[in-house]
Nucleic acid binder design. Structure first.
Lengths: 237, 237
DNA sequence: CACTATAAGTTGTCAGACAACTCTAGGCTA
DNA sequence: TAGCCTAGAGTTGTCTGACAACTTATAGTG
């Protein structure tokens, strides 16, 4: 088995990456291809899969580097809290960037989740969460106009929609979060400064107030490794 | 922007795949490369990322095909139930294959999660869940010897460790599940018949009985799209 | 010292070729 | 006729060599 160059190559490459410490540069492609006994084309093909996993990063003209992980933020899923609150609780510094607040027309997906008609005007809040300067999460919240308007937000709005609503006195009750895994789309990849198709943990959730009205439709994309989400499950059925 | 062939190509390829119905074959690589105005090497590089996302499947000598999804299994995460139970509740047929039960020495990771010493003998149960004949989940349970021994399992054991323990009368209490996203390792990729690096939803969880003893360390890998896991989060902090 | 031009090294892309594999159509045999 | 076998066309997998685009360090220049 493993008679195919591509598969054998992946094993060798994985070992090489594993024993190379974070931030170090790998040998150049021509050198590495000769070392591993394959052509440069096949080597590049295999490297693409490791880049997709976020294990390495290639930069034209510079080289290929092994990327490392930092301390993770850990949180239970039962309680809904903003990433800012989570970070404060764990005494970790996170920053926010690429904040964008704009009024858009609801697409089919968004309209269905907010229980609105398609093309209804909604407010869309996007931002990137960073730790150590590196993007680790991309968040997109969409809210009906009667819940939040663009002028409601203060000039120094720091980006947590949940914290803002709570601070304003809104009576929120629960959130229904769906968890999944996806490859990064072009938009998400650009925001997170990763490659399209890279592995991401994905939540899409609706936030309800005490009357049962959907007040927020939220999409969250997390680069694996930086966040640890857990949930306590009770035995039953 | 998008001045690089690779990025432009991904946009074009995504559109092509989107408008191609499930199971259909894409044009051959030489033809497609000419249509899209890039070399075959660059086209293959871009295709690798879509293959990683599970959107297409390439078969040597046969062609490249668009893959489609089937109905999804949906479950709340608060309640721990086996996939078999979940499928029965939703009236969906799932089958089990590649069942492997073997006694192994606990590695560091496993020992820590089961609160055992390294190299302690433990029982490892692996199996693949399929719907419609296609692999959709890969499950690995590891249990201490004093909880489950290889001879305890009946000849017709159908694969759900949780159901077996419950049926035996074990008093289980809760499970702590960590949710993440990863690229498939070589072992997992082989079991799920996908490519190494493909996007997977990943749970790793510990199961506790009523005395607080860890009785099961479980790793679960799900191909996205076939399962929908959700959790209700209460507002608070 | 600051700035610029140069050169070496690296990844990105291209072109063409052949190998390995799949599938089909036609011919052969029983 | 039914079944098996084989040859061929078509497809993806891999290789070779080359050049373009980009980064970085170096040496030179004001």
């Amino acid at each position: 088995m493993s008679n195919f160059p591509f598969q054998r190559l992946q094993v060798d490459l994985a070992a090489l990456i594993a024993r190379t410490s974070s931030g170090q540069r790998l040998p150049s492609e021509p050198v590495l291809a000769k070392q591993l006994g394959v052509s440069r084309a096949t080597l590049r093909d295999a490297m693409r899969t490791f880049e997709t996993q976020g294990l390495i990063r290639r930069r034209q003209g510079s080289g290929t580097f092994v990327v490392g992980k930092v301390q993770a933020l850990d949180s239970g899923l039962e309680v809904l809290e903003s990433l800012e609150t989570m970070a404060k609780r764990l005494n970790l510094a996170i920053t926010l960037s690429n904040l964008s607040v704009e009024q858009v027309a609801a697409d089919a997906d968004c309209a269905a989740n907010l229980n609105l008609a398609v093309d209804t005007s909604v407010l869309c809040v996007r931002r990137v969460i960073r730790t150590d300067g590196r993007p680790v999460a991309y968040l997109v919240d969409t809210l009906p106009e009667d819940v939040l308007q663009i002028d409601d937000l203060p000039a120094d709005f720091h980006g947590s929609v949940l914290d803002f609503l709570l601070g304003r006195g809104d009576t929120l009750k629960t959130s229904r979060a769906n968890v999944s895994a996806i490859g990064a789309t072009a938009e998400v990849a650009k925001a997170l400064e990763i490659q399209r198709g890279d592995v991401l943990l994905h939540f899409y959730s609706q936030l309800y107030d005490e009357t049962g009205k959907a007040v927020d439709y939220s999409l969250s994309y997390f680069i694996p490794g930086y966040f640890h989400f857990h949930v306590v499950r009770r035995v039953g059925g």
